[in-house]
């Protein structure tokens, strides 16, 4: 798929196509949806394996689940404070969904659903709406004072309020674009260098030796992509908790 007529085709990996035969055709069930279901199933299985056994000395799966739980629980507690505990399930679900999306995408033949702006924007909109609803619930009409800082001169209000509103709306865009751009850039780079390996490998006698260079780059890139997969899930979760902090302690 990568090399067709000796050209570099780095973007076809993001194309959607129906899976599961006639059922997929009927309801447009694409491989993106399939991997979302897989991610949710894996998260569910991991949490179930963690909670079911509850051994004092955890096994491997339980240790994995407990460290993921502790990681996000600590993050929410540090960022939001003790009132944030009840929002932990929300942040944890978002984190696991993004993390599994990024990590499943690193498997060969897998599809990275976080590389589609629709998916990341939907996640970001869910976070944004949830944060806004929580803020209005906790502070009522006082929430709207967020858009006009205390002490600013009143005649500046026509400038400050639209700017603050745009800044607040831009959270959605920045949250989604960051994850989307990171995943797309990484996977395009992987594909481009993998294509170089194939193209240079066909250059006769010297081919295999020259092709070793992009291959080495690709090995490094795979490691880097695993880092990015964790880091972006972490950034998404920590920004969610920072926004939750703003909603809980309105200033």
């Amino acid at each position: 798929m990568a090399v067709e007529g000796k050209t570099i085709d780095a973007l076809s990996q993001f194309e959607l196509s129906p899976v599961l035969g006639i059922f997929g055709d009927a309801v447009s069930f694409s491989q993106s949806n399939l991997f979302m279901v897989i991610a949710v199933a894996l998260t569910w299985y991991l949490m179930k394996a963690t909670a079911d056994r509850g051994a004092l000395v955890p096994g491997r799966l339980q240790a994995l689940g407990e460290s993921a739980y502790g990681f996000i629980a600590g993050m929410v507690r540090d960022q939001v404070g003790d009132e944030g505990k009840k929002y932990f399930p929300f942040v944890f679900s978002i984190f696991m969904f993004v993390l599994f999306g990024n990590l499943l995408g690193m498997l060969p033949y897998a599809f990275t659903y976080t590389s589609h702006i629709v998916v990341t924007l939907t996640l970001a909109v869910v976070v944004w709406v949830a944060v806004t609803v929580i803020a209005i619930q906790r502070h009522g009409m006082h929430f709207f004072s967020y858009f006009f800082p205390e002490g600013a001169p009143v005649w500046l209000a026509p400038i400050i309020i639209p700017v603050e509103v745009i800044s607040y709306l831009s959270r959605m865009v920045s949250l989604s674009v960051r994850l989307f751009a990171n995943m797309v850039a990484g996977h395009v780079m992987l594909k481009v260098f993998a294509t170089f390996v194939v193209l240079l490998g066909g250059l006769g006698a010297v081919g295999p030796f020259v092709a070793a260079m992009p291959l080495a780059v690709n090995v490094a890139l795979v490691g880097f992509e695993f880092l990015v997969a964790f880091l972006q899930a972490y950034v998404f979760a920590i920004l969610t908790s920072i926004y939750l902090h703003d909603a809980v302690h309105l200033h």
């Binding site: 540090d78 960022q79 745009i166 959270r171 865009v173 950034v235």
Partner: peptide, 27 residues
């Protein structure tokens, strides 16, 4: 000081770029 965002030069730089672009997009 627990649970900070990535503080390296690349982390800050990319974040600043995304913030500017997204505000422009919304505007």
């Amino acid at each position: 000081g627990h649970g900070q965002l990535p503080q390296g030069p690349w982390g800050i730089g990319l974040r600043a770029g995304v913030e500017v672009v997204s505000a422009l997009v919304v505007g």
